[in-house]
Nucleic acid binder design. Structure first.
Lengths: 159, 159
DNA sequence: GGTATTTTTGACATAATATTCCAAAATTCC
DNA sequence: GGAATTTTGGAATATTATGTCAAAAATACC
């Protein structure tokens, strides 16, 4: 049972503003949510300490960094004993190319988002990173051809 | 043909540091990459103006915000005429619950990441947002049951 | 291999911003 | 409706960002 921090409409405005522009100054943020700087900063710190805000990050052009290929990988395990599952999930956390790993409903057990520099690099990833884990039943690879939309901004809350 | 900004090892250290902690001060950043503040800030601004860094964002606990359900939706169009494709992609950009929409290789044409408040809300999303678009051949829904890993930090570059 | 040119760096001064404190205002609870 | 609690806004101070410029480093050229 985790505590439920009380979030109100102003907090949501703060969150959405920072999802759009995570490094805006407290003065800009305060103006945007119609507060003066001090209560705005206090609310922000509360959200951070609450666990509502878990961190900040920069958005990077993956190609410019040298990782132009994004791959979505759906993986099923061939058995679901605790040791197989734990081993797999520990490996996921440890592999740097795996940026996201979700447990899914539906046909596949896991959905991974993986970044690599080229096709050859992805082959290496499957051969040297995935296969050695063991217990994997199937791997279904889909490459990202294009990005239609990518945003961090949540929809306005319809309370 | 897009220009390729020249990124070196220090720039990549800056990027990785900010992917971990996107709101660190320039002083902290400079210390982390072993530069003094002024060249560090100049490099950062260059990365921003280059297009290597495209923005900043806050990481939010979706449940605390009121959107506890994340859905991955794979969608195929029933035909691929220009008007059907354009209409679909324009709608994707306009629907606030769709945070990501990728064009994919493989069986499905698109992969969406959608956030909603509950199952009923997702039903509404499919009925009122997706179906009215038209031209959709198949919708395959998978719910995110758990998050094994979620990071923004790219792997160290193996140049 | 050495010199000239270009680029990058680091220190300092100034401007902008964050942070803290406290009294006033607003809200909530009986 | 009044008391207690919470939230707010303004002012003072500390911290940080920004711009300038000379020195150092890297690069190119001969």
């Amino acid at each position: 049972m985790s505590k439920i921090p009380q979030i109100d409409a102003i907090d949501r405005k703060i969150i959405r503003a920072l999802q759009r522009s995570g490094r805006m100054t407290n003065l800009e943020l305060a103006a945007e949510v119609n507060l003066s700087p001090s209560p705005c900063l206090r609310r922000l710190r509360n959200l951070e300490n609450n666990g509502a805000i878990t961190g900040y990050s920069v958005e990077v052009n993956a190609k410019a960094y040298g990782l132009p290929v994004t791959v979505m990988v759906r993986i099923s395990l061939d058995k679901h004993t605790e040791d197989v599952v734990l081993r797999f999930e520990e490996r996921m956390k440890a592999i740097p190319e795996v940026l996201e790993c979700f447990v899914m409903t539906g046909l596949s057990d896991y959905l991974l988002r993986v970044v690599v520099s080229d096709l050859e690099d992805y082959e290496r990833f499957v051969r040297d990173r995935l296969h050695p884990i063991g217990g994997i039943g199937s791997i279904d690879t889909s490459f990202v051809y294009g990005v239609v939309k990518r945003t961090n901004v949540y929809p306005e809350y319809q309370g």
